[in-house]
């Protein structure tokens, strides 16, 4: 369970968001500029709220009043960015293994094989990110985040940089991920159709404020 109650001033823009998320996929919906990315950056620990608390599964990762700010690298919250951000100096296999190495987790060949199979990236392992298509890059980024065994996975418009055809290529993987990977997700998008397919709960954000909370039906 994720409980967020934060305030952040970013220049002229003020973000004030409060919601409790339960269920497998929390869809964070809003137009561009609504503050979605800033909000997930705060959940990830990359951005510090001015005021407020963030609690994940009973662990307080941010509490400004108590002076608590768990740094991003200790949160075990995975993040898939819109622009993949694969490490250009590492090949796909090394990118996938990065999170496991950094967290000093024992090798888990079964999970490794499952994720590679789920995302269909077995043939890409020896390649450098520069030699991948946009869709392939995003699948590898998903695998890399999953293999670090996160408690929560943030996906910030993971299809945003892809054209229509590529989106349809990745969407089924995301559905499989939701149904099989067993990691709760926060899925950010400005595309209602995408969220209708994936989300189990919707948090609607408008100009830095949460305007409504509820089931996927509210996007209809």
């Amino acid at each position: 369970m994720l409980r967020v109650d934060v305030e952040k001033q970013l220049g002229e823009f003020s973000l004030q968001a409060s919601f409790t998320g339960e269920g497998r996929v929390i869809g964070l919906f809003g137009a561009s500029g609504a503050g979605k990315t800033s909000l997930v950056n705060m959940i990830a620990g990359l951005l510090r709220p001015d005021r407020g608390t963030i609690v994940l599964d009973g662990e307080t990762v941010d509490d400004t009043a108590a002076g608590i700010h768990v740094p991003a690298w200790r949160r075990r919250i995975g993040y898939v960015f819109q622009d993949a951000r694969l490490f250009p100096h590492l090949n796909v296999a090394q990118n996938l293994d990065y999170g496991r190495r950094m967290n000093r987790l024992a090798p888990d060949p079964a999970q490794h094989a499952r994720v590679i199979d789920l995302l269909d990236i077995g043939t890409l392992l020896g390649r450098r990110p520069g030699k991948l298509s946009g869709g392939e890059r995003q699948r590898v980024a998903l695998g890399r985040a999953l293999l670090a065994k996160p408690r929560l996975l943030l996906l910030d418009e993971p299809l945003g940089a892809l054209d229509e055809g590529r989106k349809l290529e990745i969407l089924p993987y995301l559905v499989r991920l939701r149904d099989e990977a067993n990691v709760p997700m926060v899925y950010v998008s400005h595309d209602a159709a995408e969220l209708r397919q994936l989300a189990t709960q919707i948090v609607m954000l408008k100009q830095g404020r949460v305007t409504s909370l509820g089931g996927v039906k509210m996007l209809a």
Partner: peptide, 25 residues
């Protein structure tokens, strides 16, 4: 720098980010 942020979300402490991402690049 967004690559360094990505490394952080994957569990790399700042000095590991430096050694595994910043310095090699």
């Amino acid at each position: 720098r967004r690559l360094e942020q990505a490394a952080e979300t994957l569990g790399a402490a700042p000095w590991k980010v430096f050694l595994t991402v910043t310095l090699p690049l």
